Deep mutational scan, measured.
Amino acid sequence: LGPKYVGLWDFKSRTDEELSFRAGDVFHVARKEEQWWWATLLDEAGGAVAQGYVPHNYLAERE
């Protein structure tokens, strides 16, 4: 699936296409579209919880 990303700060969605998340949440990014990335929010087991657009500057690649 490629690298995983972690949320740096809490983010509250403003549209139906955006995905709310908390700092520390883990994502798989499917598409990078300039300022907004289409991402899947993952649970602790790595299963998909939700999908939506997230601001790229709120995520960091997980080491």
Rank of each mutant, 00 (worst) to 15 (best):
L1S: 12
L1G: 12
L1T: 12
L1N: 13
L1M: 13
L1P: 13
L1K: 12
G2M: 14
G2A: 13
G2N: 12
G2K: 13
G2Q: 14
G2S: 13
G2Y: 14
P3E: 09
P3M: 12
P3S: 10
P3D: 08
P3Y: 09
P3R: 10
K4F: 15
K4N: 10
K4L: 15
K4A: 10
K4T: 14
Y5K: 00
Y5Q: 03
Y5D: 01
Y5P: 00
Y5F: 09
Y5L: 02
Y5W: 09
Y5I: 00
Y5V: 01
V6C: 11
V6R: 03
V6Y: 11
V6I: 12
V6S: 03
V6L: 06
V6Q: 04
V6M: 06
G7T: 04
G7C: 07
G7Y: 05
L8Y: 04
L8A: 03
L8G: 02
L8T: 02
W9S: 06
W9N: 05
W9A: 07
W9I: 09
W9P: 01
D10I: 08
D10L: 12
F11M: 01
F11S: 01
F11K: 01
F11N: 02
K12I: 14
K12S: 12
K12L: 13
K12A: 12
K12Y: 14
S13I: 06
S13Y: 02
S13T: 02
S13H: 04
S13A: 15
R14V: 09
R14H: 10
R14Q: 12
R14A: 11
R14D: 10
T15V: 09
T15K: 10
T15M: 08
D16I: 10
D16R: 09
D16P: 14
D16H: 11
D16N: 12
D16W: 08
E17S: 13
E17K: 14
E17P: 05
E18S: 06
E18P: 01
E18T: 11
E18V: 14
L19I: 11
L19E: 02
L19M: 10
L19A: 01
S20M: 03
S20V: 04
S20T: 10
S20Y: 05
S20G: 06
F21S: 00
F21H: 00
F21I: 05
F21L: 01
F21D: 00
F21G: 02
R22N: 11
R22I: 07
R22L: 09
R22S: 11
R22M: 10
A23E: 07
A23W: 05
A23C: 07
A23Q: 09
A23T: 05
A23G: 04
G24L: 04
G24F: 03
G24P: 02
D25W: 06
D25E: 03
D25L: 07
D25R: 02
V26D: 01
V26L: 14
V26M: 13
V26T: 11
V26W: 11
F27N: 01
F27K: 00
F27Y: 02
F27T: 01
F27C: 07
F27E: 00
H28N: 08
H28T: 14
H28M: 12
H28L: 15
H28Q: 11
H28S: 10
H28F: 15
V29F: 03
V29R: 00
V29P: 02
V29A: 02
V29T: 01
A30F: 12
A30S: 15
A30Q: 15
A30I: 15
R31W: 14
R31N: 07
R31A: 07
R31E: 06
R31G: 05
R31S: 07
R31K: 10
K32Y: 08
K32F: 09
K32I: 06
K32R: 09
E33W: 09
E34A: 13
E34P: 11
E34D: 13
E34G: 15
E34V: 10
E34N: 11
Q35E: 13
Q35G: 13
Q35T: 12
Q35N: 14
Q35K: 13
W36D: 01
W36L: 10
W36S: 06
W36A: 06
W37F: 06
W37M: 03
W38F: 12
W38H: 03
W38R: 01
W38Q: 02
W38I: 06
W38P: 00
W38M: 05
A39E: 00
A39N: 00
A39C: 08
A39P: 00
A39D: 00
A39V: 15
A39G: 03
T40L: 12
T40V: 15
T40K: 05
T40H: 09
L41I: 06
L41P: 00
L41F: 02
L41Q: 03
L41M: 09
L42R: 01
L42C: 06
L42G: 01
L42V: 07
L42N: 01
L42D: 00
D43V: 05
D43W: 07
D43L: 06
D43A: 03
D43R: 02
E44D: 12
E44Y: 08
E44V: 09
A45Y: 14
G46A: 04
G46D: 08
G46V: 04
G47H: 15
G47S: 13
G47C: 14
A48Y: 10
A48H: 08
A48V: 12
A48L: 09
A48T: 10
V49W: 05
V49Q: 07
V49Y: 06
V49K: 09
A50Y: 05
A50P: 01
A50M: 09
A50C: 06
A50E: 06
A50F: 05
Q51P: 01
Q51V: 11
Q51I: 08
G52R: 03
G52I: 04
G52N: 03
G52Q: 01
G52A: 03
G52T: 02
G52S: 01
G52L: 03
Y53E: 00
Y53N: 02
Y53W: 15
Y53F: 09
Y53K: 11
Y53I: 05
Y53C: 06
V54M: 01
V54E: 02
V54S: 03
V54N: 00
V54A: 01
V54Q: 00
P55F: 05
P55G: 03
P55T: 04
P55Y: 07
H56T: 07
H56K: 14
H56E: 09
H56Q: 11
N57R: 08
N57G: 09
N57F: 09
N57A: 08
N57L: 07
Y58L: 07
L59C: 04
L59E: 03
L59M: 05
L59I: 05
L59G: 01
A60M: 12
A60Q: 13
A60S: 10
A60D: 06
E61G: 05
E61N: 07
R62T: 14
R62N: 10
R62P: 09
R62H: 14
E63D: 14
E63S: 13
E63R: 11
E63C: 14
E63N: 12
E63L: 12
